[in-house]
């Protein structure tokens, strides 16, 4: 393979790419929303893994600190979104007894 040859950074970056693929597969295939939220988290961690791996500069001097900071921020943002998604999903299950999003007519809820 061309490019940086097979050192561990590239290996992890490729793993990140495959993780994203797995996550996308899960996001598309499943109708159950909790599994889609899980898939969303897998994709997120895949992207971050790739981000970190691409910033890895050899065994001695670690990963480029800016991506690390961004990833920590990204993880917290991902958690916030997951928390809201889960809360919405639970409320949807309580209201309508379903955990999927069938593509039927838009919500009939009146405003207010």
């Amino acid at each position: 393979m061309s490019g940086a040859g097979l050192d561990s950074a590239t290996l992890f970056a490729l793993t990140g790419a495959i993780l994203i693929g797995i996550g996308v597969y899960g996001f598309i295939v499943h109708a159950h929303l909790l599994r889609r939220i899980l898939a969303f988290n897998v994709i997120g961690s895949g992207i971050f893994l790739m981000f970190g791996a691409l910033g890895f500069r050899g065994a001695g001097n670690g990963t480029d600190p800016v991506p690390q900071a961004l990833i920590i921020t990204g993880i917290v943002v991902a958690l916030s979104l997951t928390a809201l998604a889960v809360a919405l999903l639970v409320k949807l299950a309580e209201e309508e007894g379903g955990a999927t999003l069938p593509e039927e007519q838009p919500g009939r809820g009146e405003a207010e």
């Binding site: 590239t10 790419a17 996308v24 790739m50 910033g55």
Partner: peptide, 23 residues
């Protein structure tokens, strides 16, 4: 998903090495 993974992998491999980033 395979397509996505392949595209991303190809882009990753195409990146020039010796990148310093902002460290």
């Amino acid at each position: 998903s395979g397509l996505v993974a392949l595209a991303l992998a190809a882009t990753v491999l195409a990146l020039p090495d010796g990148r310093e980033g902002l460290s």
